[in-house]
Amino acid sequence: MSALTTTSATGPAGLAAASAGLAGPAVSTTGLTKRFGHQTAVDHIDLAVPRGGVYGFLGPNGSGKTTTIRMLLGLIGPTAGQHTLLGRPMPGGAGTVLPRVGALIEGPAFHPYLSGRANLRRLDAADRWADPATAGVRVDAALDRVGLLAAAKKRYRAYSLGMRQRLALAATLLVPRELLILDEPTNGLDPQGTREVRTLIAALAADGTTVLLSSHLLSEVEQICTHAGVMHQGRLVAQGPLADLRPAGHRISASTPEPEAAVRILGELGVTDLARDGDEVTGDLGDTPPEKAVAALVHGGVPVRGFTTVRPSLEDLFVSLTGEGFDVSG
């Protein structure tokens, strides 16, 4: 335990203390814009990722998520606007900020004829901040963390997509990071792997690491994110704490042999968007408590066989904002 306190100065906490702007957002952009020729890929977005948060970055394919992530990391230059990472203006601060940022950008990419371990050794060798004396231990710890230690000696070309994705995650864990920018981290993983990555991200976030996560899996974002932002056609159409973003109120579904009566009674109660499908009646309850709806139905003499309430999901929000299914290109 004493080792922990003495060396924590070089851990994330120590690095955080050493950096300026500790209180500010981990990622902040103002009017960030990227045009490729006539096409505007990213259009004046003001992203704000709070420190310590897990930020879900959502949007259909082609909505500008990856372009934004590339701009955040300094891989491509913005046409207009500024941004800061961990309080430092980019791209000027790249040399001091990026060592504290782990990134997975548009899928894994490694040298195919090197082993997983050799690939990580190479990335570590390129990092001037990483301590060479501990490279071997750290590489193996990172491989172990993503469950790849057994396949460490295998050539990357022999890895499955899920293993490749895990290796890319391991690369972000070579040194302690304050911010992780993960572009589709569960892409290609099996359900077990997806669950493991979710656990891993939760564990990292619990340790104080800020995570910016772009994902296709809305349910997953709902499970692990504290904040979310939704991109649509290059613009950030919604952003905020997850609880604020979700549409309020419940949606109910009642099963009854007398649906007409149920529709009438629920309508009198103020339930909107009522729909009837056989014995099933659905509607938006608004602010009315669900128990009141049940009582009204029973008092009105409607036999109720089943009654369920559904909280609106992020997907509902997403569809309402982007007006399209999730995998449709924008």
């Binding site: 080792a3 922990l4 060396t7 924590s8 070089t10 851990g11 994330p12 690095l15 040399g95 060592p99 001037r128 901040w129 990483a130 301590d131 004396a133 501990t134 231990v137 750290r138 710890a141 172990d144 963390r145 993503v146 469950g147 230690l149 864990l173 070579l174 040194v175 302690p176 990071r177 493991e196 990555v197 656990t199 891993l200 564990a203 990292l204 340790d207 690491t209």
Partner: peptide, 23 residues
């Protein structure tokens, strides 16, 4: 990952010095 779930980054950082004070 199952093996490593107990290993937090703080634990890794406590075992080894990962980052140099200066590049």
């Amino acid at each position: 990952m199952s093996v490593a779930e107990a290993v937090t980054p703080a634990a890794v950082a406590s075992e080894v010095r990962a980052v140099l004070p200066r590049p």
